[in-house]
Design a binder for these strands. Structure first.
Length: 259
DNA sequence: ATGCCGAAGTTACTTCGA
């Protein structure tokens, strides 16, 4: 079976692209982030016509996560245990479900904005809660992966120029330590191959010709437990989906499994 | 070729993203 994770940067704006991509790549399970719409505005009928059940958690113009599945969708859980709030709101940044033989989580980790911004402390607090929350699913009987936009480059090799943004978010030791703590729950990074160039970047900013110049970052990750890892037969970043007008600024990460 | 930012809420800008 085939699973994928993709920050689509607005479900409404990307719907036609999403439907075309589902038809061309035939994933069984897709984790989406940055829906940027409320649950009531999720196009359930169009996704059902494409063959997918949908579980979503969206509140409005920011954040929002979903899981699409054509192999069953049950035991849906929104959020994580002790999820920290920001400005008094528990934001829609995590949803977990059982899809056929898999347990999957769609995650949108806070950006952090700037190391001096309260959003950065929020990011680290979210990751700390995630590390504790992930233990049960990581140790569970089902193959499990926490997939999504972690907003962290795990190593300097996961960013086009590690010195481009000194002291900025996504590459700090504090964020990498927080990511390591999530992995310590019993999960490992399923490292994808790149379709072009050496590094499997998943994000390129819309600005400054970053995509044509391949100034990217690998921030969309799949952290998997041993049962999931053992089933992986291939993993790649579909950078072709980043091309052209109307693309998200993130490309999908696709994982094939012997399940 | 992959091409100089885009989405959403609101109404001319603002906020956010990484």
């Amino acid at each position: 079976m085939r699973v994928a994770t993709w920050n689509i940067n607005s479900l409404k704006a990307r719907l036609e692209r999403l439907l075309a991509w589902l038809a061309s790549h035939e994933p069984d399970v897709v984790c989406l982030q940055e829906l940027k719409c409320a649950d009531a505005d999720v196009p359930l009928d169009a996704l059902a016509a494409a063959g997918y059940e949908t579980a979503s958690w969206g509140l409005g113009r920011w954040n929002g996560v979903a899981i699409l599945s054509r192999v069953g969708l049950s035991d849906v859980r929104r959020g994580i245990a002790d999820q920290p709030a920001f400005n008094g709101e528990t934001e829609p940044r995590a949803i977990t479900a059982t899809c056929g033989p898999l347990r999957v989580q769609s995650l949108y980790v806070p950006n952090g904005r700037d190391v001096d911004d309260p959003h950065f402390a929020y990011k680290l607090a979210f990751l700390k809660a995630l590390a504790a929350d992930a233990r049960a699913d990581a140790a569970g009987d089902l193959p499990f992966a926490a997939m999504g936009d972690y907003n962290i480059c795990p190593t300097d090799d996961d960013v086009w120029d590690a010195d481009a943004w000194p002291g900025t978010t996504h590459v700090t030791q504090a964020e990498r330590d927080a990511l390591d703590a999530v992995k310590a729950a019993g999960l490992a990074d399923v490292h994808p191959r790149a379709l072009k160039y050496d590094q499997p970047f998943t994000f390129w900013d819309y600005r400054n010709l970053d995509f044509p110049k391949n100034r990217g970052m690998r921030i969309d990750l799949a952290l998997a437990n041993p049962a999931f890892q053992a089933a992986v037969t291939d993993a790649f970043v579909d950078r072709n989906e980043r091309k052209g007008k109307g693309a998200s600024d993130h490309a999908p990460v696709v994982i094939d499994l012997d399940l």
